[in-house]
């Protein structure tokens, strides 16, 4: 192999070039362009007119506006809501489907379906369920003595309406990752813990959880990265409303850029979001470089 490697180092680099160049052109370049735009006053009506340099004005505007800060708070609130429920439910369901009983494989497979559905379709089917007056969700909940709730039209429930749709789609992801981690665990510590007379709950809390913790942390970072980008479901369900109750960062960028055509301001907000996502991505990769003996 050393023989192949030495002779072909340059050819390997040539193999890599097309992908790297395409990614540079399609990702890094637009990002730099967004950075450039964020220092300009931009008006789409004057597409080819030289843009005026406005310094940090766009950044000053968004960072001092309560509207922008509000969208950041909503974004992180939604993230906290979806991640916490997905973690608890996902681990819980993973513990069920990893039991050594017949039929568990089928159940696991069926539960993966929501993940592969287009987010727009997820939004639309939940819109159908939430629909004022007609939707089935309030009807189902009435059997449990709950509701009726004005899911997408009330400021109390709109954010939960979005969270529930996201939880429905992505709890299977946490379940799938956790179930895979649970199956990889070696059985010895469990037997030792059982012999010591620990209850199943103690075994889970003291033996299982510490072992799968690194995997859970990585899964949560992946979910956080996705939750930060959430857009499609909100676009379908509430479009940021009622009022600005569900206006997340992505909605803010969209409206500044394509409703008000203030692309400079939209680009500045985009750049703030890029900084936040870079932090999340870095934390995710850090979480992967864990001690291999622990995982």
């Amino acid at each position: 192999m050393a023989y192949i490697r030495k002779r072909n180092r340059k050819i390997f680099l040539i193999f890599m070039m097309p992908a790297v160049l395409v990614l540079f052109g399609t990702t890094i370049y637009p990002m730099l362009y967004a950075g450039y735009l964020s220092f300009r006053s931009y008006d789409l009506a004057k597409l080819f007119v030289p843009r005026v340099y406005v310094g940090w004005a766009n950044y000053r505007e968004i960072l001092s506006s309560s509207e922008f800060l509000h969208t950041l708070i909503v974004t992180f609130k939604l993230m906290a809501m979806t991640l916490s429920v997905q973690l608890v439910l996902g681990v819980g369901i993973a513990l069920l489907v990893t039991q050594r009983l017949p039929g568990m494989g089928v159940a696991r497979t069926l539960l993966l379906i929501p993940m592969m559905i287009s987010p727009v379709i997820v939004g639309l089917v939940w819109l159908f369920l939430y629909f004022p007056e007609l939707g089935y969700l309030n009807y189902f909940l009435s059997f449990l003595g709950l509701g009726p709730y004005a899911w997408i039209t009330s400021t109390d429930w709109a954010l939960w309406a979005i969270a529930i749709a996201d939880i429905w789609q992505w709890t299977p992801f946490v379940m799938m990752g956790t179930a895979a981690a649970l199956t990889n665990l070696s059985p010895e510590p469990f037997e030792a813990a059982k012999l010591d007379g620990n209850s199943p709950f103690d075994v889970f809390w003291r033996v299982t959880l510490p072992q799968i913790r690194p995997v859970l942390i990585s899964l949560m970072f992946l979910r956080a990265i996705d939750a930060f980008k959430i857009y499609d479901i909100i676009f379908v369900l509430t479009k940021g409303g009622p009022g600005d109750t569900t206006e997340v960062l992505s909605m803010f960028i969209y409206r500044q850029s394509f409703t008000f055509w203030r692309m400079g301001v939209g680009a500045a907000a985009s750049f703030v979001s890029l900084v936040i996502i870079v932090v999340l991505i870095t934390l995710f990769f850090k979480s992967l470089n864990r001690d291999p003996h622990q995982a």
Partner: peptide, 13 residues
């Protein structure tokens, strides 16, 4: 992993 919405403006232009 980057948010699509953050690059959609440059793409549009």
């Amino acid at each position: 992993m980057f948010p699509p919405i953050a690059v959609v403006v440059p793409y549009y232009i």
